[in-house]
């Protein structure tokens, strides 16, 4: 290996390492702290590992006022978002993958435009509109906003997934007696299912992690991130650690499960037919 190449490699790996530590170290500390007995968290100098593993802090967090109800709200909102997003996003992805229609490329690009405007910019008009429509401070309202946020990703991911299912297979099913829809349901859908599951989890996590819109659009029916955000300033340190760790969990779990599909999706989305 030539000298400049070694240098480049070293630089690359150092950067990767830095970024990895940048993300991982806080997660590690939050994780450790949330399983540290409450009184040990304030100790100085702080030991790297707690004296013993304890569920005490987590328990305190989960039993705090409003946590359980907002957790339920979060789950509901995420599930609603999931249902809305898949109901609209999967057929859209299928259409983009299978059919040639006027403005297809425009559609693929246009769908990303919806992510161009920061939520902060839309906050006031959204709140006003939601109050007018009677959606303000409702779970459905939050789910609708989350759907709007997740939809572009859902369409792009499902497009990649359905492009990965050869058209021939559906046509073969049609020559064997299936209708257009039957061919989709019996052949394309089962083959796309693992990928769709990944897209579903992705959507779930987007909704689960979303703070801003959820905070502005609710007062009493807070989702968990909105609840934590609004109470965190007045909370003890161990509450923050436990809350933080609890919020990270689904995302971590999800990442481990779908790494494979993420690669597939990016490969599939760039490989045009």
């Amino acid at each position: 290996m030539s000298y400049p190449r070694i240098l480049r490699r070293t630089f690359l790996y150092m950067s990767v390492l830095t970024f990895a530590l940048w993300v991982l170290v806080p997660i590690l500390f939050i994780g450790i702290s949330s399983f540290t007995p409450r009184n040990e968290i304030y100790k100085w100098p702080k030991p790297l590992l707690p004296s013993h593993f304890s569920l005490d802090t987590m328990q305190f967090f989960l039993n705090s006022y409003g946590v359980l109800s907002s957790l339920l709200n979060s789950v509901w909102v995420a599930l609603l978002t999931l249902a809305f997003t898949l109901a609209v996003g999967a057929p859209a992805g299928y259409a983009v993958a299978r059919f040639y229609f006027r403005g297809r490329e425009g559609f693929r690009l246009g769908i990303l435009v919806t992510r161009m405007f920061p939520t902060a910019l839309l906050a006031v008009p959204l709140a006003v509109t939601f109050i007018r429509w009677g959606l303000y401070d409702t779970l459905i309202g939050v789910a609708l906003i989350h759907t709007a946020m997740a939809l572009p990703f859902a369409v792009i991911i499902t497009t990649g997934i359905f492009m990965g299912v050869p058209k021939d297979l559906e046509e073969a099913a049609m020559t064997l007696g299936c209708s257009r829809f039957g061919a989709f349901a019996r052949v394309a859908l089962p083959l796309a299912l693992p990928g769709l599951a990944a897209a579903a989890m992705f959507t779930f996590v987007i909704s689960w992690n979303e703070v801003f819109a959820a905070t502005i659009l609710t007062v009493h029916n807070r989702t968990l991130p909105a609840h934590i955000l609004t109470t965190i300033q007045a909370s003890p340190l161990y509450f923050r650690f436990a809350g933080g760790f609890f919020m990270i969990l689904p995302a971590l779990f999800f990442m481990f499960l779908i790494r494979r599909y993420l690669f597939h999706m990016w490969g599939g989305a760039t490989a045009e037919r």
């Binding site: 050869p166 021939d168 297979l169 046509e171 073969a172 049609m174 020559t175 064997l176 007696g177 083959l191």
Partner: peptide
């Protein structure tokens, strides 16, 4: 008529055998 009602059967270049 759709393919299903034509009384035909087809063999595809890619075989199109259902993998699942």
């Amino acid at each position: 008529l759709p393919p299903s009602r034509r009384g035909i059967a087809m063999v595809f270049q890619s075989y199109a055998v259902f993998p699942h």
